[in-house]
Amino acid sequence: MKVAALPRTLGLGPSGPLGLCLAALLLLLFAASLLIGYTAIPAGKALSALIGAGDSLHVMVMREIRLPRTLLAALVGASLGLSGAAMQGYLRNPLAEPGLVGVSGAAALGAVIALQTGLAAAFAQALPLLSLLFAMGTVGVLLLLAGPRGGSLTLILAGIAVSALAGALTALVLNLSPNPYATAEIVFWMMGSVADRSMDEVWLAAPVTLLGWALLLTLGRGLDALTLGEDAAEAMGVSLGRLRLMLLAGVAASVGAATAVAGAVGFVGLVVPHLLRPLTGARPSTLLWSSALGGAAMVLAADLAVRLILPDRDLKLGVVMALIGAPLFLHLIYKTRRQGS
């Protein structure tokens, strides 16, 4: 009988060939990101340098340059992919992305203020901390604007308002900036990058990021139920208020932390869930963890491209991501249109 093929449904963890493929891809790109770089280090030596053995230069390169860069790329990518999938699931809209609720815009504003006021120069972690603070503050503003029982539409509108305000204030800071160097620094920071980061940034971002992931990964069940609409989901025992709060807190924590340490990296949260949706049977819960793996893989790949294409020009990750993401998105639109007709 057909019934035997069923139990995959409502599964919550990574399983099956898709999970294995994504995990293998991620592992491969992670290793490549550790092994490929400006200084040529043979694989064996590179790995032993990671645990502190061998040439001190190799140890320095591996542990202080490549490891933090690789870890951050994976963290940022997973956060963006996961948040994108959660946002799309909650809003039941394939065009939703983490930036829609204004978290990344607010985080960027925090960073810009830290750079402009000189706080970032005075105290090394001021930039990510202020940025994170702004991202967290966004959740409060959104909840105030959207109200305790507001639906998804009010949330989108509140998000757009917050984004617009953050964008306007960022532009104002740039506009009034008396210092062209600070302006240039801000502009480059906003392009997004994981280059030249230290383990300090990893330690700062990781706990917040993991907290955000923990919140978002529990949403699978509620997001699955939302396939049937808000009313039906609520009648099936899903608390929409709690779901929305967890979603906002999760997105703010993970995307806020990602933006704080890597600047604005777009398109990952939009494109990755879109690419993986057909492979997950369009099930929101499966899409959550697979988009986390896929997002990490995509950002690692983009960061590798940054290093390989123009190694001496400091190409920014956010720029490459947009250059990869936009055509990919155009292709997806074209495919959807063809299927529709």
Partner: peptide, 15 residues
């Protein structure tokens, strides 16, 4: 409302 192109069986499983 059916938000995503899921299979019929999966949709009914939501019940």
């Amino acid at each position: 409302e059916i938000a995503w192109p899921v299979e019929v069986e999966r949709l009914v499983t939501l019940g």
